[in-house]
C-alpha cells in the first residue's frame, strides 16, 4: 500500500458509512413509515428552526445561559476551593470526608430538594448544574495544587509575595494543567445536568422542547433538539480545547523537556 492510498482509504470508508446510514434511514422512512422514523428532511428543518426566530429565544438561549452559568460557577468555585485545599495541607482531613460523600450523590437526586428550596427557577437549574460539575474541577485543582514544586514556593517567598499573591501567581498557574483536565470532565457533566434539569423541571430550554415534542409525537423535532444539544456539546468542547491549547502552550514544551531529561 502506498502512503497515498493509506490516507485516502479511511476517508472513503468513512464517507461510505455516512452515506450508507443516511441512505438506509431515508429508505426506511419512506418504505416503513413509523413514528420514530421521520424523514431526514424534516429533522433538518427542525434543526434550522431552532437557530432563529421564536425557538432561538425559548429553547436554545435559555439552555445555553443555564449551562454556561452553572459551568462557570462550577469552574470558579472548584478551582478556588480546590487550590485552597491543595495548598493549605491542614485543611484537607477536615473537609475531605464530607466532600467524598457529597460528590457521590447522583446530582439528579438533589434536583427535587433544589426545586423545593429554590422553586422552578433558573437559579435552581444553575445550582444543580454547578453541583453536578463542581467536583471534578475541585479534585483536579486540589491535586494540581498539591503537586506544585516546593522550590517555586520558596522563590515566591523570597520574592516577598503574600499568601494570596502566591496562590494567584504561583500555585494557580502551576495547577492549571490539572485544573483543565477536570474542567473537560465538568463540561460534559454540566451538559447532562442541563438536559436533566430541563426535562424534569422547566417550561423552556432544549430539554423541555424535546420532551414536549415527544409528547406531541413531533419526532423530527425531538431528533433536531437532540442534534442541537450535541452541537452545543461539540462546540463548547472544541472551544475549551482551543483555550487550553493557548493557555497551556508552555506546558507542552515544558513537559516535553522534562520527559527528554528523564529518558
Amino acid at each position: 500500500m502506498t502512503a497515498r492510498s493509506l490516507t485516502i482509504t479511511p476517508l472513503a470508508w468513512q464517507a461510505g458509512t455516512i452515506v450508507a446510514l443516511v441512505a438506509i434511514w431515508h429508505w426506511a422512512a419512506i418504505f416503513h413509515p413509523a413514528v420514530y422514523l421521520p424523514p431526514i428532511q424534516r429533522v433538518a428543518d427542525g434543526y434550522i428552526r431552532l437557530c432563529h426566530g421564536e425557538l432561538l429565544f425559548s429553547a436554545l438561549l435559555p439552555s445555553l445561559y443555564r449551562l454556561l452559568a452553572g459551568f462557570v460557577v462550577a469552574v470558579v468555585v472548584g478551582s478556588v476551593v480546590g487550590i485552597a485545599m491543595g495548598s493549605l495541607r491542614g485543611l484537607d482531613p477536615w473537609v475531605r470526608p464530607t466532600l467524598e460523600y457529597l460528590r457521590f450523590i447522583p446530582a439528579v437526586a438533589i434536583l427535587p430538594a433544589a426545586l423545593l428550596l429554590l422553586g422552578p427557577t433558573d437559579q435552581m437549574r444553575i445550582f444543580v448544574i454547578a453541583f453536578g460539575s463542581v467536583f471534578p474541577v475541585l479534585l483536579a485543582a486540589t491535586d494540581g495544587a498539591r503537586r506544585v514544586d516546593p522550590t517555586l514556593i520558596d522563590v515566591a517567598r523570597v520574592s516577598g509575595l503574600s499568601t494570596i499573591e502566591r496562590l494567584w501567581r504561583v500555585v494557580l498557574p502551576a495547577a492549571l494543567p490539572s485544573v483543565f483536565s477536570g474542567v473537560r470532565v465538568a463540561l460534559s457533566i454540566a451538559l447532562v445536568m442541563m438536559v436533566i434539569s430541563e426535562l424534569i423541571a422547566a417550561d423552556d430550554g432544549l430539554g423541555f422542547y424535546i420532551l414536549r415534542n415527544q409528547r406531541l409525537f413531533q419526532t423530527a423535532n425531538v431528533y433536531a433538539g437532540v442534534l442541537m444539544i450535541g452541537t452545543i456539546g461539540l462546540i463548547l468542547t472544541l472551544t475549551l480545547l482551543a483555550v487550553e491549547k493557548r493557555v497551556l502552550a508552555w506546558h507542552r514544551g515544558w513537559r516535553g523537556l522534562m520527559e527528554a531529561n528523564r529518558g
Partner: peptide
C-alpha cells in the same frame, strides 16, 4: 536566592 535546581526554580509559564 539562586536555588540549586534551575529547572525547578523558574516559572515554566
Amino acid at each position: 536566592v539562586v536555588f540549586q535546581d534551575y529547572n525547578r526554580s523558574l516559572f515554566p509559564w
